[in-house]
């Protein structure tokens, strides 16, 4: 068959397909609805014609036209619509808690690294209040005291959207910084991650212990209760991601250090996604809920405890059925 015969035989088909491609989105879908297999068939036929034209060395103009038709067909037919956020929802609903359970050793280590210094320091400061001067300068302490002094209540509620938004930005930056430190420190064979987790645990513990011992309970604990679970667990999980990377460098197993790093970072990045989500939520709660000053402290602490309980349940149970399903035959 020569080129002219070939073109003559299939020209109508191509024009048909081309006009479908030219149709705007909605009409295209409508046309596809008549017989959903029709256009994919046409597309495959065009791809076949393209291969033939290539093989028989037909003119470049014909080949280019078919190529362009095939490309546009590929674009039109392979664009997947729908099930848009399925992956994200799957991750939040079961993937992330399942991942946390799978990496529970690392997560528990990170939690210990963060919380042991934190809680230990609170205990120490309640017993020996002066110990705080080993950790923070008097100016810093004054600053924190001013922030959470019960007298602040008289300054009135500060829940204007603008200032809250500004604080949201600040909190995001602060949380991101802590998460980033805990994670990136992992690249120094995990030493940096360990350092930053202990360091942040100590700093938070120092402030918390000091203010508690001063009796600023309603302002301080009322403020931090709501977002504490989100922020601290987020930091611990990003620290765990850092540890994962550090461990991959210390004990690469049968891989090179680089390859081991690549493998570990796949998991670490997924942990980070979760941590980033939690951290963002923490900043949001901190800016828009924790800063409300005219709510009773009991309510705020209760909400905080409920969040902790929910997280415990989430990480222990969410997505269990999926775990089981994936193991079944």
């Amino acid at each position: 068959m020569n080129q002219a015969q070939f073109e003559a035989r299939h020209a109508a088909e191509w024009r048909d397909f081309e006009s479908w491609l030219d149709a705007p989105g909605a009409r295209k879908e409508a046309a596809a609805g008549v017989n959903p297999r029709h256009w994919p068939h046409r597309y495959r036929a065009v791809a076949h014609h393209l291969a033939l034209a290539h093989d028989r060395a037909y003119g470049p103009e014909l080949v280019d036209r078919l190529q362009s038709l095939a490309l546009r067909g590929h674009q039109a037919l392979y664009g997947s619509r729908g099930n848009a956020m399925a992956a994200v929802i799957e991750f939040i609903g079961s993937g992330f808690p399942a991942l946390v359970r799978r990496e529970s050793t690392l997560i528990l280590t990170a939690i210990a690294l963060l919380f042991v210094p934190l809680l230990g320091l609170i205990a120490i400061l309640l017993r020996w209040p002066d110990f705080v001067h080993y950790l923070a300068s008097p100016e810093q302490l004054l600053q924190y005291e001013a922030m959470y002094a019960p007298a602040n209540r008289a300054l009135g509620p500060q829940h204007k959207a603008e200032s809250q938004l500004a604080m949201f930005g600040y909190y995001i930056w602060n949380n991101v910084r802590i998460d980033f430190q805990c994670f990136a420190g992992g690249l120094l064979f995990g030493v940096g991650a360990i350092f930053f987790m202990i360091y942040n645990g100590l700093m938070i513990g120092a402030v918390a212990g000091h203010l508690t011992q001063l009796g600023y309970i309603s302002t301080f604990w009322g403020f931090v209760a709501g977002h504490s679970s989100w922020e601290l667990l987020g930091a611990a999980i990003s620290g765990a991601a850092g540890l994962k990377i550090g461990w991959a460098l210390i004990a690469p197993g049968p891989h090179t250090r680089m390859a081991s790093l690549k493998i570990a970072s796949r998991t670490a990045v997924r942990l980070l996604y979760g941590a980033a989500g939690m951290t963002t939520c923490a900043a949001f709660i901190e800016a828009f809920w924790s800063s409300l000053r005219n709510l009773p402290v009991e309510l705020k602490v209760t909400v905080g405890i409920v969040f902790w309980a929910l997280f415990l349940a989430y990480f222990l149970f969410a997505g269990r059925d999926r775990d089981a399903a994936s193991h079944a035959d």
Binding site: E103, T105, L106, T109, W247, I250, A251, G253, P254, H327, A328, D329
Partner: peptide, 28 residues
């Protein structure tokens, strides 16, 4: 020292128990 202390890390890494697989060809 670290690997001694964190000996319980060992189970975390898949490669080391590959010789007794729980799943083969997608079968439990």
């Amino acid at each position: 020292q670290i690997s001694q202390r964190l000996g319980w890390f060992r189970g975390v890494f898949k490669g080391e128990r590959a010789w007794r697989p729980e799943v083969m060809f997608g079968m439990d």
